[in-house]
Design a binder for these strands. Structure first.
Lengths: 338, 338
DNA sequence: TTGTATGCGTTATCAA
DNA sequence: TTGATAACGCATACAA
């Protein structure tokens, strides 16, 4: 019984069972060549002492794998990222890996900090939603460790990457609004220097160009990260610039836009990028894609590298789809109600 | 340049810098007593080789801490758990710890698997939303490692625990409905053997007893885990049992109930346990509490144990509050619309 | 200011 | 079938 303060080691087990260290090791790792009764003795000793293998020591000795996957995202509490994280965790578990997740909240310094912490821990592979603009340092630091970029491509470096079809999805959304007869379509998004935001802005522009519609720059409002900021910006847009339609470029902005629209009661059309729970009840038309697909494909790419694939960097693009639920089908000049 | 396939070690750095292993160690750990130019030489060697300290080896040698926190929840994709996880991650970071999160989806076998995996990795402490009914094994297995239970108490064991005021919150919700004049109030919740579900049912019962209202057992419907299941159950309830009000005991059930209510168009009152995003726009009256508080208090308890606190097990209860948004203020027999 | 020797808990090598 | 011994990469005690 008397479990000492310090955990029992294989040596303790060996002593208690009256065998050698190596025999204990064999039993623990199910290696062949152990007599049934010796195995039983060892098993008893393990149970009596409450021994648990130290996987830190094991990894150190074994040299290669720590049976760990690292994931760096912006914010676990955002459903977009948590859906991604869930997919990665599932894939990791299927391979017997544990997942270490770190959020860096769009802070490049923290991103770097987290990456180094994970590499020091010798994660087997790294999945990263990059925050900073340049990632040569990352590829250099991670030499030997597969790195896959999710949602945004790395800066100045070639690497496996999984992206959403941002341009296509945004274009689809805005073309839909234009098809309803809208000519003053506002654009609200996260910080404009964010790759996804600028890609979606490209889609917005392309749709206008294709339709021969001019863009009023006053309607283009990047820079709102949180839902509250988006709500304020949209409220101001509605009051001053009088757009007849809105394209919100991510789920935070869509939430803010919905609140602002409800508050004014104006019949303004809205299409959001990224679906969200209860969008059906709110009648929100969105560009939908599968956030989990980022995690699934990302881990598959990483695992392929671990299994020896040394082909050229892959780039996978997840398709999008327009889901009509009402808010995107409001016509310009329509009355409130529907 | 020629980085070999295997990572450089402190020995390699020492050799390159022409100093001893110990000197490199001193530089890396900012220990005093190193001449400025020796430190510079070592720094150069580190940079040239791209050396990164192996934290696995460091933890092994250092013996005590792996600078890691383990968190076991049911499902990262559920906003309740992801808010909790975010709070834990923040607390962990403040202490310089990384967080390993594992979801076990209400599967006791998986819970046990994850716990042992984390203990083998020598996490400094463990935060667990317990899935199984009995946790003596856990306290035994975790000897020496602080364990804090979140959201549900452990079975058959005394340990630090952080809970929501389930009974009080549920009672508050149902009393509110009774105060509106409702007498046929349905109860939908997760599996009845789940501690939180049965506690909330207690609150439901207490409110009825206090008001001298009988309970129609046909209105009590535990057992719906996913939103889709809840939607079906509520639809059937509305069609057959004709309750005038609903109490949904968690966010999944509330989402399902909202969909079912919308589908029938009946003017049935609804109060949900656990707030959710956009509940304001949907006019959903809920019992609110701070999911992040579970994570915050939980990590604080764990850290206190790590810092030597050996007092008796603590139990912290997070308060709840009723938020009126309309759905809970519908009166029996009211017309649709509002 | 710098270096040598030893050990953390495990697995791998080789011999008995 | 079993065991003695070295080694993984680092930190600690102690010496120089």
């Amino acid at each position: 019984m008397a479990l000492s303060a310090t955990r029992p080691t294989m040596r303790d087990v060996a002593q208690r069972a009256g065998v050698s260290l190596k025999t204990v090791s064999r039993v623990i790792n199910d290696e062949p060549g152990v007599a049934t009764d010796t195995a039983a003795k060892v098993g008893d000793a393990i149970a009596e002492l409450g021994f648990q293998r130290n996987d830190l020591a094991r990894s150190l000795r074994h040299g290669r794998s720590s049976m760990t996957l690292g994931l760096i995202i912006e914010d676990v509490a955002n459903p977009f990222y948590s859906a991604m994280a869930q997919a990665v965790e599932t894939a990791a578990r299927e391979r017997g890996l544990m997942l270490i997740t770190a959020s860096c909240e769009e802070d490049p310094a923290r991103e770097r900090e987290m990456v180094t912490a994970l590499l020091r821990r010798r994660v087997d592979a790294l999945l990263v939603v990059p925050a900073g603009p340049d990632h040569r340092w990352l590829k250099d630091a991670a030499v030997g460790t597969p790195v896959v970029f999710l949602d945004r491509p790395p800066g100045d470096v070639e690497a496996d990457t999984v992206l959403i079809d941002n341009v296509g999805g945004a274009r689809q959304a805005v073309e839909h609004l234009i098809a309803q007869g809208h000519e003053r379509i506002a654009y609200v998004s996260d910080a404009g220097n964010l790759w996804t935001a600028s890609e979606r802005l490209n889609g917005y522009r392309q749709a206008h160009e294709a339709a021969g519609l001019p863009i009023d720059d006053a309607l283009v409002r990047p820079g709102t990260h949180r839902a509250e900021e988006a709500e304020a910006v949209v409220a101001s847009l509605l009051a001053n610039e009088r757009p007849t339609a809105l394209f919100s470029a991510n789920n935070r902005n869509t939430v803010g836009a919905l609140r602002a629209l409800r508050a004014t009661g104006q019949a303004t059309a809205l299409v959001g990028f990224d679906d969200f729970e209860l969008a059906d009840l709110l009648g929100a038309t969105v560009v939908r894609f599968e956030p989990a697909a980022l995690g699934r494909h990302g881990s598959a790419l990483a695992f392929a590298r671990l299994d020896g694939d040394d082909g050229p960097p892959q780039r996978i693009v997840i398709p999008t789809e327009l889901v009509r639920r009402g808010s995107g089908e409001v016509r310009p000049g329509a009355e409130v109600g529907s």
